[in-house]
Amino acid sequence: MGGWAIAVHGGAGIDPNLPVERQEEAKQLLTRCLNLGISALRSHCPAIDVVELVVRELETDPLFNSGRGSALTEHGTVEMEASIMDGKGRRCGAVSGLTTVKNPISLARLVMDKSPHSYLAFSGAEAFARQQGVELVDNEYFITEENKGMLKQAKEAKSILFDYRIPLPSKETCAAAAAENVLQMNGLPISVYAPETVGCVVVDGKGNCAAATSTGGLMNKMTGRIGDSPIIGSGTYACDLCAVSCTGEGEAIIRATLARDVAAVMEYKGLGLQEAVNFVIKEKLDEGKAGLIAVSSNGEVACGFNCNGMFRGCASENGFMEVGLWE
């Protein structure tokens, strides 16, 4: 048994021109969240409680795209989603389409613990939230001025190049050709891309793994769009071998069943954790861009991404601790 380990992320795909002070803010938040998780682990909290605690903190801080600070739909509203999974027994809970729940990850936990189902969405999930008495706020609480500006820019960028209703020939214009030379995530120039998702994975001192992921989704998404974050096996997965949380282009992650595939190549192909992470990032994503964090039941921690940077931090019981943005 290798002791506890923890990793957190605040999304993959970072604008290389992100101001240095914003980079510092992100590092400070990641460090604070890591320390929160580390103290909980030192107090012998079970992995499932630690991932919920850390993701709540990430949701509450407006810096990353989840909870307060969530990306906006095409209508300028916030629709949040999250999922959580306990490696022990592979119990899981997920929520989508939340508009008033302050901490989606805790509602996902309640779906797991207190409902007969694994996944509740939209008005049914909101009704469940009211019944469970979780903290509710007005939708405005989640919307930041910065994200309003980002939505406007995303709409401008998309209306020219990426509107799926425009017939295909427009893709051949020189504007589109020029855009291909710009760093992109999810069809958006990286400067207006809000890294999707926050997440945390933990193995506790007893070797139990857990994973939690939460997001506001994709900037300028269609109302009703569900991404990878609430999908067990795609954005989040935990079993008795490992726990995984993914971030990036949701559609590529879903197609790749990325989180489950890390566990599956360990289970069925006998790869180690870092090998498994490298394998799925290289072989399973096709053209998609994404990143992930993972821990194994014997206390290893790993991360991987094929896009420009990932907000991340990790630590383990033997004293290792690292917070980073770039490769």
Binding site: S123, M222, I226, G227
Partner: peptide
């Protein structure tokens, strides 16, 4: 085939 997404749900799916 006709959206940039994979999964639409509830009112948004009905509107689509």
């Amino acid at each position: 085939e006709n959206t940039p997404h994979i999964y639409l749900a509830f009112d948004g799916a009905e509107a689509f």
